[in-house]
Each structure stands twice: as structure tokens, then as C-alpha cells.
């Protein structure tokens, strides 16, 4: 089994999918000759030609709008939005079109579409290259929102997204691209969308999170272990649909839940998870649910001290978890 970075896992999966299914096309800004601003699509145009991996004009509404048309007309487009922050011009196309097309046509039409977008901060990207935008879409029935936390998951979830008959938003954390490495099998495999994954078993507290934060939580769990606190880590892998069953299982098991996301606190997916636990497992809890999330500012600032103050780190997770364990 090869060891790959998170980015390589995504690129190799795209390559494998392009080889497997001639209906797949990739397009977006700079994804062709340049291979994407993060090099995720590097070499793909060379291998598959300009018809299948192409640069589009700079217009997000057009990228998603045309992808919807192409999906209806027999292709499996994987458009890229260069930064998740730039997805907003296309929100109308995603929310009001892609998400509603099946419903509004009573099942007649479907939009098999995977929208890839790098997101997240800690990379000096400031307000418009750092955002976590996932919850805007998690709110919308008709969409699926996938956020892998490891190279292995990145592959299996991307392949599953490509197979999915519905629009899937596939968010890739920029800071994960090169920092995360792991073993990735060569053969194709699917990880079902909507299935969470227990990344670490524990008995004292549960940390529920996703994406890059999974790795920070794992690091925190090691530190906590030394202090005699046993932390369980549930990686949601997708935030729509949520794996309600596994969320409730871990909450009932440890009785103490810490939810972590880089996305803003208010209205973040942590609120939904808290509500689910409160509705279905309140009397199994030994402490109030705790959320550790990005502060309620519109986006991440640029200047290092401000950026650091915003970012969730493993130290911040350790601290919050320790606090919760003591309750």
C-alpha cells in the first residue's frame, strides 16, 4: 500500500475515476494547464485531454450552472470551485437549482455532480481564502456534504461521491493537503456517504468532529491519555447526512460530548448535533454538551496573531476536553 498525502489521494482518485468512466469531466478555473492552484489536478489534462479536463472562464455561477446541464445530459461533471470562499456567486445554482431539481421535477431529473472546493484556514488565506462554508449547504435538503479527514477517507469518499446520483459537495481542507499522509490502497473502494467513523475508541469523553480537526483531536487524545483521560473520537466524514446512530452511541457510551469544528460556532453543525443528542440521549449525559468552534466573526483574519486566535488547535481541544472530563 502506498503512503500518500491527502492531496495525492484526491488526485489519484480523480485519475482513477477519469480512467474508469468516460462520462466524467473536470473543469474550473486553472484546473487544466496549471493543474489547479493547489496542483490537485496536475497532469490530468495531459493524460485525459482538454475535452475532459478543461479551464473554464472565471464565472462560478456559469461553472456550476453548466455542470448541472452537463450532468442532466449524460456526463458526470466534477467541477472545481477554486476556493470554497468563491462558491457564493454559485449559491443560487447549487441551492436553488442542483438541490431542487430532483424534488421539483418529482424525481424525473437528477443532478449527479461532485463540486470540489478547498476550504479552511490556518494558511494565511484571510477572509476570502479560509472560510468554512459547509454548513450553508448542510442546511439544504437535496445536497450532500462530505469532508474527509484522512487520505484513505479522501479516496473512498470521493469515489462514493462520483457514484452518487445526487449533488455532493466535497470539501478539502487546504491545511490537510500536504500535512496529512497515510496509507491508501491502489484499488478502488467506496466509503458510504453518511457513515461516520470511530477514529479512536475511549471511555471518558467523546470528541465529535470532521475534516482536518480529526487529526488535531487525535493529537489531543494522545496528550489526554497521558493525563489519564480516555477520549473517543468520532469522525463524521459527512455532515449531511449525519450519522445519527453513531453520534448517539458515542454520546451514550461516554456521557460527555465535545463537538469541534473550525466553522463558526453559531449555526455550525455542532448545534444540530447537540440538538440530536439532547432530543435522544439527554439522560445518558453526565455533563452539558460542549462546543469548541471558530469564533463568531465573519471569517478568518490574515495577521498571524488574529489568525492564530481564530484557529482551532490540538492544544485548544486538549484544554476543552480536559475541562469537560473534570466536570
Amino acid at each position: 500500500m502506498a503512503v500518500m498525502s491527502y492531496l495525492e489521494a484526491i488526485r489519484e482518485t480523480l485519475r482513477q475515476e477519469l480512467r474508469r468512466d468516460s462520462r466524467i469531466i473536470i473543469y474550473g478555473e486553472d484546473v487544466g494547464v496549471r493543474g489547479g492552484v493547489f496542483r490537485v489536478t496536475e497532469g490530468l489534462q495531459k493524460e485525459f485531454g482538454e475535452d475532459r479536463v478543461m479551464d473554464s472562464p472565471l464565472a462560478e455561477a456559469a461553472i456550476i450552472g453548466t455542470a448541472i446541464g452537463a450532468a442532466v445530459n449524460g456526463l458526470r461533471p466534477i467541477p472545481e470551485i477554486q476556493f470554497a470562499d468563491f462558491i457564493f456567486p454559485a449559491i443560487n445554482q447549487i441551492v436553488q437549482e442542483a438541490a431542487r431539481i430532483r424534488y421539483r421535477s418529482n424525481g424525473d431529473f437528477g443532478v449527479p455532480l461532485v463540486i470540489r472546493a478547498p476550504f479552511g484556514g490556518g494558511v494565511h488565506g484571510a477572509l476570502y481564502h479560509s472560510q468554512s462554508v459547509e454548513v450553508f449547504f448542510a442546511h439544504v435538503p437535496g445536497l450532500k456534504v462530505v469532508i474527509p479527514g484522512t487520505p484513505y477517507d479522501a479516496k473512498g469518499l470521493l469515489a462514493a461521491a462520483v457514484e452518487d446520483e445526487d449533488p455532493v459537495l466535497y470539501f478539502e481542507h487546504k491545511a490537510a493537503y500536504r500535512s496529512l499522509k497515510g496509507e491508501v490502497p491502489e484499488e478502488r473502494y467506496l466509503i458510504p456517504i453518511g457513515k461516520a467513523d470511530l477514529k479512536r475508541s475511549g471511555k471518558d469523553i467523546s470528541i465529535i468532529t470532521y475534516g482536518l480537526m480529526v487529526n488535531y483531536a487525535l493529537k489531543a487524545a494522545e496528550a489526554l491519555e497521558k493525563e489519564g483521560i480516555s477520549a473517543e473520537i468520532l469522525d463524521l466524514r459527512s455532515i449531511r447526512p449525519l450519522d445519527v446512530q453513531m453520534i448517539l452511541e458515542t454520546a451514550k457510551k461516554t456521557g460527555k460530548v465535545l463537538i469541534v469544528h473550525e466553522d463558526n460556532l453559531t449555526g455550525g453543525i455542532g448545534g444540530e448535533i447537540s440538538a440530536l443528542i439532547a432530543e435522544h440521549a439527554l439522560f445518558d449525559l453526565d455533563a452539558p454538551i460542549r462546543r469548541l468552534a471558530g469564533p463568531d466573526v465573519p471569517a478568518m483574519p490574515y495577521s498571524p496573531p488574529l489568525e492564530h486566535a481564530f484557529m482551532i488547535t490540538s492544544d485548544k481541544i486538549t484544554e476543552a476536553a480536559r475541562d469537560l472530563a473534570k466536570f
Partner: peptide
């Protein structure tokens, strides 16, 4: 250099914004 007295954004935005 993203300093406090940056008149454009007080160090919040990337340079050249």
C-alpha cells in the same frame, strides 16, 4: 505586513486588498 495600523483592514485581509 498585516500590522495593527494597516488602514485597509487592520491586518485582517490578505495583502493588496
Amino acid at each position: 505586513l498585516a500590522k495593527r495600523d494597516d488602514p485597509s483592514s487592520g491586518g485582517r485581509q490578505m495583502p493588496s486588498h
